[in-house]
Design a protein around this nucleic acid. Structure first.
Lengths: 125, 125
DNA sequence: CCGTATCCTCATCGATACTG
DNA sequence: CAGTATCGATGAGGATACGG
């Protein structure tokens, strides 16, 4: 259920769109999901994370991390005892609820890449 | 499999990010998914679809439909026999492979909305 | 190391008017 | 009806430099 396979009503679709858009609003943009993926392997410090995500600037990383924290997807921890200050970002439990979403996106992305390869091929499946 | 639950390696994450980004590139933006949802109930004509998606302008709809067709997610059919020209858009079989993705986004969006409601609540029920 | 401030560019999206 | 053309607003995102 949840996503009608054959004949969704007008209202059903409208409702579905709302939720989908909600998710997109939160996770959309270039960096949100990559950052979450980057944190999925365990806590990371700012610089580490920046290296992990690859291509992101400090400005964007900082901004996106704020957004994600506001939405409760990640948490930020400061260790002031260290000399040059250490900040650690951790994927919150709530952030892990995104795994199915990420997995779906990941799976489709992979499949799509394969699909493109033999674009003209016969194939069926 | 596919998305390591506990300790993904550096390389695994990088690979996952690529696929996720690929999907996002194709499906990102404000309208792609809503349009696909709008077509999930069956073929639609341009104007119908515009009404269905709600809020989209002719310009955006036209542009997005082109993108989606190029990627093989939908197909366009023109009936020139009718007086004022009728164009029908249909969700291609390949477009239906997105249903799991949409369903994931949809489910998370719904859950998130609920999550927000009792953000500070100590549960009620 | 961890960011913030500033400036800038470009893609996205919207409104309106118009054509076939 | 099915689109396209034009103009304009907005903001995401990048480069660089600097502060704590």
């Amino acid at each position: 259920m949840s996503f009608p396979a054959s004949a969704p009503s007008h209202t059903t679709c409208t409702g579905a769109m709302r939720s989908v858009r909600d998710s997109l609003d939160l996770l959309g943009g270039k960096w949100k999901l990559p950052i979450i993926v980057g944190l999925s392997g365990g806590p990371q410090r700012f610089k580490q994370l920046q290296r992990e995500v690859a291509g992101i600037t400090a400005k964007m990383l900082s901004k996106e991390l704020k957004d994600l924290e506001i939405n409760g997807l990640i948490s930020r921890h400061v260790q002031a005892d260290a000399a040059p200050v250490a900040v650690t970002y951790t994927l919150a439990a709530y952030g892990r609820t995104l795994f199915p979403v990420i997995e779906a996106l990941h799976a489709w992305g992979q499949q799509h890449r394969a699909h493109i390869m033999h674009a003209g091929e016969a194939v069926a499946a």
